[in-house]
Write a protein that binds this DNA or RNA. Structure first.
Lengths: 203, 203
DNA sequence: CCTTAATCTTGACACTGTCAAGATAGTTTT
DNA sequence: AAAACTATCTTGACAGTGTCAAGATTAAGG
């Protein structure tokens, strides 16, 4: 697909594998990604991928890792925007759910049990997730100072519970439990109301 | 295990399978439950279970279904208790997370993608989940009337978002992302604050 | 007692992850 | 340029999975 078919050496298999895997999970779901099919798609023998990823789990970790970079990017961008703090937070909630919806299979790898419970997360993955989380907590601290999020607890705790709420909403949608896509934005609005300090107080 | 070893007919295989499966997922996780191992544990040939459950998926649906009955039980019990509405709600949040923690593998089947996305949920399962959800929404309506939950939206919407928040917290714990069990009750308290109307208002 | 229906078993197939050993092709050293 | 080395890829194999088709065994009903 990438280069001519009959090369013994592929060129950059690692990269090709990640790209193909990303595409497969997006179109067919994580559960139908197999090392063998992946190898076949890339045009290489069944075990070739094992010279680039120790495990299937390691491959999945790499995919999840990418997701964390993207998500951290979203965060950083939003933190630096003009607009009011409250507007930016609201926008973030929208973006968070949009990310989850658009990259739902990656999202599942990032926060699902496939890696975090069953398989064991990579060191690289742990690091990436920690960094993203840290960025989030820093923003929460700002948002507390700006009277968008409550001050009734530490940034860590508020960050955890707020994120948990977003995560829950995301999961219900991407796991196919809330099906009505049309109700999503309504729920988001309500969620924001739950999470933020009453608007009249901050104004 | 249940009866003497050499019976050709097992007695009540359906029941034995469910019991054994429940035990296996509790001790080893859903992902390491296989039809063949299950059959072996119960002392029967590999394909015998297929005369009682069309699919592996169907078996899993049955397990999830049981979970919904238990959860509805918790709900109903709590709705009828004395105490103030707010106390009961707080208690429910604790119980919800306790259930998720104690039966984390069942919880995953109930609300996870294994069934709802990958496999297809049973009719029986859909019904059970709908009933439980309906009970929940009814209670939310009461709680709104009693000024515990906000009135700023319909019972359905408030029920959805509130539940999403609980679900998110539950998931982060059972999927092994928040690991500190000690922080749980602190998070629960904060979550309740987020979800409920300010205490001073309702008093 | 003999038929019928319920229940369970054996064999088989296609698929999975992964290991060990060998093949191939660039790279480096002599 | 020849030889040694190393990175990369392949073939073969094994144990495990879900599940189907066909046959064996036993309980229940007439």
């Amino acid at each position: 697909m990438t280069t001519s078919k009959k090369q013994y050496h592929h060129g950059d298999l690692t990269k090709s594998l990640l790209e193909a895997a990303t595409l497969i999970i997006k179109e067919q779901g994580v559960e139908s990604l197999s090392m063998r099919k992946l190898a076949d798609v890339v045009g290489v023998s069944r075990t070739a991928p094992y010279h680039h990823f120790k495990d299937k789990n390691t491959l999945l970790c790499a995919l999840a890792e990418q997701g964390f970079y993207e998500q951290k990017q979203i965060l950083s961008t939003l933190m630096k925007q003009k607009h009011s703090a409250r507007e930016r937070f609201t926008k973030y909630v929208y973006l968070y759910l949009e990310y989850a919806r658009l990259h739902n299979e990656t999202y599942d790898l990032m926060y699902g049990r496939t890696i975090w419970k069953a398989g064991k997360p990579n060191e690289a993955l742990k690091l990436a997730s920690k960094r993203t989380f840290k960025t989030w907590i820093e923003w929460v601290e700002e948002l507390q100072a700006q009277k968008v999020l409550t001050n009734s607890n530490t940034p860590l705790r508020i960050g955890q519970t707020t994120w948990a709420s977003l995560h829950g909403l995301a999961r219900l949608f991407i796991d196919g439990i809330y099906l009505e896509q049309s109700e999503l934005s309504d729920m988001i609005e309500q969620m924001v109301k739950n999470l933020c300090i009453d608007e009249s107080t901050s104004a």
